[in-house]
Design a protein around this nucleic acid. Structure first.
Length: 139
DNA sequence: GCCAACGTTGGC
DNA sequence: GCCAACGTTGGC
């Protein structure tokens, strides 16, 4: 089955790409939004995940991969929430800024812009490939 | 079931 | 620091 493509957001002060690289992999916990949960549950092993630094950085900085599919979020004290495990795959040679994303017509429909508060969102294969290209990465 | 109030996120 | 967008809560 073909991989799917996703984008996750995190404030670098809370958990950065560098933290992920240092840790080797991490549990993507703490998502408490129904729409984001739907996306977490749809993730499959080996799917690609672009890692976006929000707020202070506003750049996509790296590509991660799903290494464990959705399971109960150990940080959830109530409610039916899930997390996945992700591991770093490749850093972007050139981080792609929000400003750049906004300036590219092919990315005008991207969830990052259309639904700015959603923290886990799908990307179309075209969007993913455009972003990799902008990031200086050939897969 | 509606909606006002309130809290959070995240860009500017 | 401000504010728009959006989710949640609670009164009715």
């Amino acid at each position: 089955m073909n991989p799917q493509y996703w984008l996750v957001k995190q404030e670098p002060e809370a958990y950065s790409w560098a933290d992920l690289v240092k840790d080797g992999k991490t549990q993507w916990t703490g998502v408490r939004n129904y729409q984001a949960r739907i996306h977490l549950r749809s993730m499959k092993n080996k799917d690609f995940v672009l890692f976006y630094h929000s707020v202070s950085d506003k750049k996509i900085v790296g590509i991660a991969k799903i290494v464990k599919e959705a399971y109960p979020d150990p940080t959830a004290t109530e409610g039916d929430w899930v997390c996945v495990d992700i591991a770093p795959f490749k850093p972007l040679k050139n981080p792609v800024t929000l400003e750049t994303i906004k300036s590219i017509p092919a990315l005008s429909q991207i969830g990052l812009i259309r639904q700015s508060r959603l923290s886990v969102m799908p990307l179309s294969p075209e969007e993913f490939s455009t972003l990799c290209h902008l990031g200086g990465i050939t897969l």
